[in-house]
Simulated scan of single mutants.
Amino acid sequence: MTISISSILAFTQPLSLAALPGLDPLFSTQGIMVMLLGAYAVAMWMFLTSAPKVHTIMVTDVQLAKNLYEGMLELPAADIPLHYYYNYEQSLGAAAIDPLYLSPGIGRSGLSSTSAPEGLWYQLKKNTQLHIIAGASLGEKNRQRHVCFDRDCLEQVLLRVQMRNVKHKIRQEKPLNFLVKDYDGNVIEMAEVSA
């Protein structure tokens, strides 16, 4: 059997992109940029879909709320989600500046916007967190109030209240409004605020 020298040289030559049909445009500068953008889009999608859903409740007294959510309802503390820590929604411009997320010192210095968000963070369910912030006004009879714009959030809190056999009274179904009595005898009004 004889093998020609030209056949042997053909196998030892490095393969060029031009030799493979259809791959030349893929590895061009434009092709590489498109692949990088696609990889970035997939990474962002994975980051955002793995981020926990966050419910926010505004309270009149943060310390009283801490006693209720940690003490009576036994909610475990949660880490601040990265998209809140880095103020992700507002940096994208996806959300207008919502007064619910503004801290009291927003006008004091430019450094306050880079600090971690204020408030309390609790794990409500596996991929659902509860963010407690100050800002609600006192209710009737100077009753402590916890207000929320999300009915699902208050329904989950009510379910937790019922599971822990905490004394409560449902005042209204739509919008959801119920009273909870803590160990110190404070009556806390939990109210859904309709937009």
Rank of each mutant, 00 (worst) to 15 (best):
L17A: 10
A19P: 00
A19R: 01
A19L: 00
L20K: 06
G22C: 09
L23R: 07
F27Q: 05
T29C: 13
G31S: 07
M33Y: 04
M33T: 14
G38W: 05
Y40G: 10
Y40L: 15
M44Q: 15
M44R: 12
W45M: 07
M46W: 13
L48F: 14
K53E: 11
V54N: 07
V59M: 01
V59R: 01
D61A: 03
D61W: 02
V62E: 13
Q63Y: 03
L64Y: 00
L64T: 10
K66D: 10
K66N: 13
Y69L: 15
E70V: 03
M72W: 01
L73P: 05
L75W: 11
A78P: 05
Y88M: 15
Q90W: 05
A94R: 06
I97Y: 08
S103Y: 03
G105Q: 13
G107P: 00
G110K: 13
S113R: 04
S115M: 14
S115V: 08
P117V: 04
G119D: 07
Y122N: 12
K126L: 12
Q129I: 10
Q129Y: 15
L130P: 08
L130V: 05
H131A: 04
H131Y: 06
I132Y: 02
I132W: 02
I133Y: 03
A134S: 11
A134H: 03
A136L: 01
A136C: 02
S137T: 09
